[in-house]
């Protein structure tokens, strides 16, 4: 091997090794939080009971039911949804080249809320489904519609990144106003349902929903990872990206569609869980940079970790009550985030 090549490999390895260590550390942390999450809850099972329920020994039916039907899907949902929101956020920040972007920047969550509100308050749906799927299906459909509007707008020749953000903010206002109008008209009972829906909670996620979210997450993330070098080029500038042979506009449109698909799935099943999609990519950028093969994976792991912790806290803070996880993420996230911004951690974002 030539001297030059071995030198190149040394540099490359030292860049990569650091990131691999970060990944392994995060994986360990996530496993620890997963285990804690299975133990946490209003029913106090000891270590023995929990373990025997975990292996389904059949000794304690109630414990098995709680662990396998309630705690396990919720704990896994925290991991998958955290990862999904983080990856959605990290690509939104990448294609808009704006560190303040999140999966919800372009009006995606408010579209979902409007869809849900229509279903809850007026029982109006765009597709003929019944029961509690109605709310989910409707919010998903509205999100897809919003993404379609964004897509048409982004096709426009003059649509720059900033005008796209402005258009997204405008959509946000429109959907929020319509949702508030519905809230104003709503009966007390449906208002309560709607408020609860908009909090964001993992308690609604069962095994089926978890499987759907996981499927979408894997599908979208694999596409992102396959395009990771192109996306890395997008972190520079449109002109540089073009000079590297990328059509930034068409790539941007594809990514927006995929982000919308993933966020829509999450929001329609679990409501609006804020902050993770904004903060996880930030932390990832600070500790490992934006080389997307690692940026995507590390963001996902940080998202999982944060939402796992939030999930544990939402169960243990007030005994006997599961607080909405959407509230927890912001409450614990903000102080930590502020610390990161003002601490001596080297900031290159």
């Amino acid at each position: 091997m030539s001297n030059q090549l071995s030198q190149a490999k040394d540099v490359y390895k030292s860049l990569i090794n650091k990131k691999i260590i970060i990944i392994v550390t995060l994986l360990c942390l996530i496993i620890i939080t997963l285990v804690i999450n299975l133990f946490a809850g209003s029913a106090d099972f000891g270590i023995k009971e929990t373990l025997s329920a975990l292996v389904m020994s059949g000794k304690n039916d109630l414990a098995e039911f709680i662990i396998w039907k309630l705690r396990m899907p919720m704990a896994l949902a925290a991991i998958v949804i955290g990862a999904a929101l983080a990856v959605a956020g990290c690509e939104m920040q990448t294609i808009l080249r704006n560190p303040m972007a999140s999966p919800y920047t372009l009006g995606i969550s408010s579209a979902a809320s409007l869809g849900a509100a229509l279903a809850i308050v007026l029982r109006v749906s765009l597709i003929p489904v019944a029961g509690h799927i109605l709310v989910t299906a409707n919010s998903f459909l509205f999100t897809v519609l919003a993404a379609g509007a964004l897509n048409i707008f982004a096709k426009n020749r003059s649509a720059s990144r900033n005008s796209l953000i402005l258009f997204g903010i405008a959509l946000n206002f429109l959907f929020s106003a319509l949702t508030q109008l519905l809230q104003y008209l709503a009966s007390e009972e449906s208002l309560q349902t709607l408020t609860f829906w908009s909090f964001g909670s993992l308690t609604r996620v069962d095994w089926t929903k978890l499987a759907i979210i996981t499927g979408v997450f894997i599908f979208v993330t694999v596409i992102f990872l396959k395009n990771s070098w192109k996306l890395t080029a997008m972190t520079t500038s449109d002109e540089t990206a073009m000079s590297l042979g990328i059509d930034p506009k068409s790539l941007r449109r594809k990514i927006i569609f995929l982000v919308a698909l993933m966020s829509a799935t999450v929001v329609s099943f679990a409501g609006t869980i804020g902050f993770v999609g904004l903060v996880a990519p930030h932390i990832s950028r600070i500790i490992s940079g934006e080389e997307q093969r690692f940026f995507i994976i590390i963001s996902a792991l940080i998202g999982s970790f944060l939402l796992s912790i939030a999930s544990i806290l939402s169960k243990v803070l007030i005994k006997g009550i599961i607080l909405p996880i959407g509230l927890m993420t912001s409450i614990i996230g903000v102080p930590f985030f502020t610390y990161l911004i003002f601490s001596g951690v080297r900031r290159n974002a």
């Binding site: 860049l15 070098w229 890395t232 080029a233 972190t235 520079t236 500038s237 540089t240 000079s243």
Partner: peptide, 22 residues
């Protein structure tokens, strides 16, 4: 090579140059 400085502040020099082989 456009007039503006190359952006993408959190990439390392090695990664940035590697992008040339996109």
């Amino acid at each position: 090579i456009p007039q503006e400085d190359i952006a993408g502040n959190s990439l390392t020099v090695f990664e940035t140059v590697l992008l040339g082989r996109l």
